[in-house]
């Protein structure tokens, strides 16, 4: 497996009420100028067993269920940028390693001694575009499985709320510019949702309903 190492990534998260997701889609369609992509990802989080050393490690196996032939990705998220400079940034900058892998990756990690910790199913849509840097915006509903691997029976964790995640790859040299471009893009979404670092909660925007109504009223005839 050829490792495609992204040294760092900038990430922000926010929430939006399910009733306003259509309006957000219209806004993103206009901002990004690219077609949206469907998202249906089965994410399995594995943790290392005692035979793999004292320091616990965690890997995430992502299975993209949208294509007819599901594709697998392994992803390891490292530590985030620390210090007073990092605290002032409105974006979380963290190290990450990601690679495309073959379908027997799950057996491989089980063989190494990793254990399944939890799994989650993400369903929604995403936009991938270039605006100062390569930015990916995903709007997903997170689902949990009532039984092991039962993706067909998955139920939403929070039916009324969708998770919005904006990520952008970066390096140690250019992360400042990437942070600036992500922050700039986040401003465009301010009428509908607030975005923050994954650790901090933001709540919903009081004016989101009015903004959503304005967006929807202008696109009533969008299916012409």
């Amino acid at each position: 497996m050829a490792l495609e190492i992204l040294q760092m990534e900038c990430v922000v998260q926010g929430i939006i009420e399910t009733q306003h997701v259509d309006a957000l889609e219209i806004l993103l369609q206009g901002l990004c100028g690219v077609p949206k992509e469907q998202v249906r990802i089965h994410e399995l989080c594995l943790k290392s067993g005692p035979n793999l050393g004292v320091v616990p490690s965690e890997v995430r196996l992502l299975c993209d269920l949208v294509p007819s032939m599901p594709s697998w990705t392994v992803r390891h998220v490292g530590g985030s940028l620390r210090g007073p400079g990092a605290e002032q940034l409105s974006v979380l900058v963290r190290s990450v390693v990601e690679s495309k892998v073959s379908s027997n990756v799950l057996r491989f990690f089980y063989g190494l001694g990793y254990k399944l910790d939890h799994e989650i199913l993400k369903v929604g849509f995403a936009f991938n575009f270039h605006r100062g840097s390569q930015i990916a915006v995903s709007v997903t509903s997170a689902h949990k499985m009532p039984k092991l691997h039962a993706t067909e029976d998955a139920v939403p964790i929070t039916p009324n709320i969708h998770l919005v995640e904006i990520t952008s790859p970066a390096t140690a040299e250019n992360y400042n510019e990437v942070v600036a471009s992500v922050t700039s893009f986040c401003e465009y979404l301010a009428p509908l949702l607030h975005l923050s670092k994954p650790g901090a909660s933001t709540g919903t925007v009081p004016s989101a309903a009015a903004a959503a109504a304005a967006l929807m009223s202008n696109s009533v005839n969008r299916l012409l």
Binding site: I15, E119, I120, K147, A150, I157, I161, P198, S201
Partner: peptide
Amino acid sequence: KIQEQENQLRAAVNFGEGLKLTGDQRHPS
């Protein structure tokens, strides 16, 4: 209520809280 749901959603997505299966659920369907 929204604040609570947001915390629940973020904790689940980022840290897997509330997603760990109990004994009888561990057997695959």
